[in-house]
Design a protein around this nucleic acid. Structure first.
Lengths: 321, 321
DNA sequence: TCCCCGCTCGGAAACGTTTCCACGTGCGCC
DNA sequence: GGCGCACGTGGAAACGTTTCCGAGCGGGGA
């Protein structure tokens, strides 16, 4: 692959001139511009971004670490973030932590070694170490959807209390008094927050406070199914269930239907299939793509020397069935 | 952020020694090793990967460009590929082309500028230019799921003929004679291949050859719904429909149900919701994660000097309902 | 006529690594 | 008791850029 020296030789100028022409520096003659452009084209020259960023301080690359690409919520968030970065002329390097903090740590180390301009991440439960070391190394970090104790970085989250309240009020209005919760893992902040919001609002509305109505799960499909089974085995079983994410909802839906139980299921996150099943699911919509875009904007501001700020986004109830 | 010079100074040795210790070169004394390790730890030193790769030829980064992260088929493929790369000690840089060849071109340029070790891509329809320029620049490329005319790179695909045959035979066995096809865009190779396989097998089995039973769509949800509407408007309407991807299937399913039509829908790609709806969808399963892993393995071989080879993977019919 | 200024340009330093080369130093062997 | 060899180390070159600095050259004003 050709270098700036090859271009300089072919154009009959110095490498300084080539660099100036190609970077749009006005201190060049029309003649040099012509010769350099021509030579670069002939050679199919692409500047070596690694050498550039060694000399410059910036790399133009932003690290984006998400929990799981296969979770549509995060896929949407990644997409939103990426579009925003692209519009700002930056390129995104997506890492998939797979809900595994060892893999996450590995990618974060890679981000650090690559000296990315900034990192946008939805942290894993395991440990805050990875994020903290980035912050301490002076790399701008913005957290996505989940907070992390002891890490000084802005966060973009949804209003958990609002979402839970919309769901429970909706169910209460439909006559339910005994409502179950399938909660995400307490190792992530969203999981914990949903449980405490659920308990508070349930009590405020005077609904059945039985502790066994809150079932913890791992956030995956199978975990959702298992938690639903546990709820259905209670006597009396709840008449309605709130599920904390789309994956668990699909497991829970199948378990409930498999038992032929008459339980109303409400889910966080809206997905196509929730409209297609019978009965369709009411959902608490969280606009993941928007969250990603907002977070990326915050990160870009931070990179450009702005000061950190966090954002909380609203949720929306979509009643169905 | 500290450099190798800082570590050398703190440890009281030369930068050469630091480099040797940290890269595991045996020509170092136990005493130096100790001092350097200690100093590196104290400073939180992480080698600058960009400087390393400038000196070395390798970067340890592999570019992965996929059509759309939000399409679960590609999300799974990306995940499979990523895991495989991770196991081989490489880090993956995921680009989301968003089914847009301008964005794809931009990412491919970035990959080239970054001098990634290789590129795994599921190409967009628009143009083969991006892929071709990578190949010409000597960067190893493997194509994922879609071929590209005029580009000399190995491909990993599913056996289109087999998949279509499984689907049509299944429907024939269930008594259908008039079968519709919702095809993906003819701008991508898979779209074209499915149409021609469909026509051939339909004729081999002596089924209704009416050309209006093949409806082209854009591969998205809305396109699938529109194509289904067009099929349902025929008289007589087909009694069964084969849909070329999961997104279009979801649109088609909704359209069919909305009309209350008695049409049996079979879909390419298996997804959770297809089991949850009523009636459940029979599917032609294509193990996308496996495809991604296989393709990554081919790419890694190619990078290590192996010679190019293509792979065709089998599909599997999962009858339901 | 001379000087100064502006416009281009070439040369060189610097970014942070790795690795080759050469230079001690201490030991074993004849 | 010398000689050579293995071992550890420091210095320097090289990777491909950008940018600063200084120089050449022409033109315009005093």
């Amino acid at each position: 692959m050709s270098t700036i020296h090859d271009v300089a030789r072919l154009a009959g100028v110095s490498i300084g001139t080539v660099s100036r022409v190609l970077s749009g520096n006005p201190a060049t003659s029309p003649e040099s511009r012509e010769r350099v452009r021509e030579a670069a084209l002939r050679l199919g020259y692409t500047p070596n971004a690694r050498a550039q960023s060694l000399r410059l301080a910036r790399t133009g690359v932003i690290g984006l670490s998400i929990s799981d690409v296969r979770n549509p919520f995060f896929a949407d968030a990644a997409h939103g973030a990426e579009q925003e970065a692209l519009a700002a002329g930056r390129v995104t390097m997506l890492a998939n932590a797979d809900e595994d903090s060892a893999i996450e740590a590995r990618y974060l180390r890679a981000f650090r070694a690559q000296r990315v301009d900034g990192v946008l991440m939805s942290p894993q439960g395991g440990s805050a170490e990875g994020a903290r070391s980035l912050v301490e190394a002076g790399i701008p970090v913005v957290l996505l959807n989940r907070t992390l104790d002891g890490v000084d970085a802005p966060v973009v989250t949804f209003d958990v209390r609002q979402g839970v309240e919309q769901a429970i009020t909706h169910l209460r209005d439909r006559g339910h008094r005994r409502i179950g919760l399938i909660a995400g893992p307490v190792s992530v902040s969203t999981g914990r927050a949903r449980v405490s919001a659920f308990e508070r609002i349930r009590d405020e509305l005077g609904l059945d406070p039985a502790p066994e109505l809150v079932q913890l799960a791992d956030g995956r499909r199978g975990g959702g199914a298992d938690a639903a089974e546990r709820l259905l085995a209670l006597s009396p079983a709840p008449t309605a269930v709130l599920s904390s994410n789309a994956l668990m909802s699909s497991g829970a839906f199948e378990a409930i239907r498999g038992r032929g139980a008459a339980v109303e299921l409400v889910s966080f996150d809206d997905q196509d299939w929730m409209r297609l099943v019978d009965p369709p699911l009411s959902v608490i919509e969280q606009d993941a793509a928007h969250m990603g875009a907002v977070a990326m904007r915050l990160l870009l501001e931070l990179i450009d020397g702005g000061h950190p700020r966090s954002v909380t986004l609203p949720t929306r109830l979509i009643p169905r069935g």
